[in-house]
Design a protein around this nucleic acid. Sequence first.
RNA 1: GGGGGCGUAGCUCAGGGGUAGAGCACCGGAUUUUUAAUCCGAUGGUCGGAGGUUCGAUCCCUCCCGCCCUCACCA
Length: 492
Amino acid sequence: MTERIAEDRRAKLDKLREKNRNPYPIRVTKPVSIGSCLENFEDRQGEEVVVAGRLTQVRDFGKLRFSHLMDRDEQIQIGFERDRLPEFWPDRKLVEANDIVVVRGELGLTKKGEKTIWATEVTLASKTLRHAPEKWHGLQDVEARFRMRYVDLFANPEVRQGFILRSKIISGIREHFDSQGYLEVETPILQPIFGGATARPFKTHHNSLDMPLFLRIAPELYLKRLLVGGLERVYEIGRVFRNEGLSTRHNPEFTMLESYGAYADYRDVMELVEGLFGHLCQTVLKGQSKVEFRGADYDLTPPFDKRRYTELFAEHNGGLDFFDEPAVLARAKELHIETAGRPWEKIANDVFEATVEDNLSGPVFVYDYPLAICPFAKAHPEDARIAERFELFIAGMELANAFSELNDPIDQEGRFERQLEHVDEESSSEMDEDYVNALEFGMPPAGGLGLGIDRLCMLLTGNDSIRDVILFPLLKRDSGRVEKQTEAEKED
RNA sequence: GGGGGCGUAGCUCAGGGGUAGAGCACCGGAUUUUUAAUCCGAUGGUCGGAGGUUCGAUCCCUCCCGCCCUCACCA
């Protein structure tokens, strides 16, 4: 079969049209879910229902045929009998596996006790022109699954369930923040100055304003402006964009939750996060608190372990004091970490990442980070070198990042200025003066949180790769296939 | 960007310097209780792309494209 469209299916489509059967009707009878038909099924035999979905696996017995019908959540057997379907029966071979149909019928059982809808009326709702993937293995080819996610979703029910779960996770997050009095807001994705994180941005341009713009790397600085404005508790779930490499844990666009709550500090945010995980275990995981990820088990029951950054640093580096610059530099060289021309605190943090992070199975809050790598966090009242910041690690993945937000405009301006001394592709060459201006109008003390939704979904759905929890992960264009297709189209 | 692996029918996969293979799907036939139905028959391929070696390449070599894993950057 070299044609783009399966010729046999095209022929069936033509036959349907000849018989005045619309293969793509505008309106069909509204169905109920198959799941609702399965509830209390035994007591409802003989009841008439209308269901709809994709046909699978037709099993033909001459005057009788069986198939399964699949909708979003469930599937059920459909029994087609010649004598009950005078209208449909002559067309039965024109309607085949993979077609979308609406079936009216009676709930009943087969001789072997299989729950079945005995059809009394069958309407083709959409004719399929492509062959479906194999019924048993589904679509396995990873590349094809990503490029044709629409096929992956209907051919692989577990993929569909995974994305349904992702949707429920996001609903669960909204429920939790809403219940805590947080207001969901939206802030600019197109930003004239990028900030709020350390990452290379995507650049774009607005034509009529003739203005360079960046796709946001974080919503942080806009959300905190809203605290100045008095909204007090805000959160945003949205896409952020980072112009960096791809991996099983990184996609150039990913979904982030950020929240900011006035009159709270990072300890309160830890509780907020623990509460969130508790809520998700209750709702999304239906009371479960254990998840399996990459072959290991994780217990998400709060409270989580809490470990001080500098203590972990010493523990995994032979008692080394994080602030002992010459000793840490020596350790960095031992670990073959790039040191030349880089700020020492980044080098020291690289030592932390190289020696500690992979060993954090978690869930664990790592807290009290060195202030120098936390440009938006408040200093610890007892040690000016330390910031009130924590990160949540589970399965070696950084899932969340939070701090007691810096609201001192003069301190903030100074930290921006210090950042400008080391400008690279990952930091703006411009200070966000308006953000400092906002702080000068007064921002209440606040606890802020950033949480990677995709990684959370990986953990809760047990998927190893971020591409398995993003419906359409970024892929290169397959120029070979594209050329092949356009050539084939020209020949038509 | 570095290293490793992969790309064969619509799908899942085997094969391998000499006419390209299976199962499923599809097509024709049989069949009123199947559950990956079964049975009989038929169809279906630029073996990712372009070069090279060879009498002959899907197989060997080179380059290119794409995907996966991994390292680096990062969340």
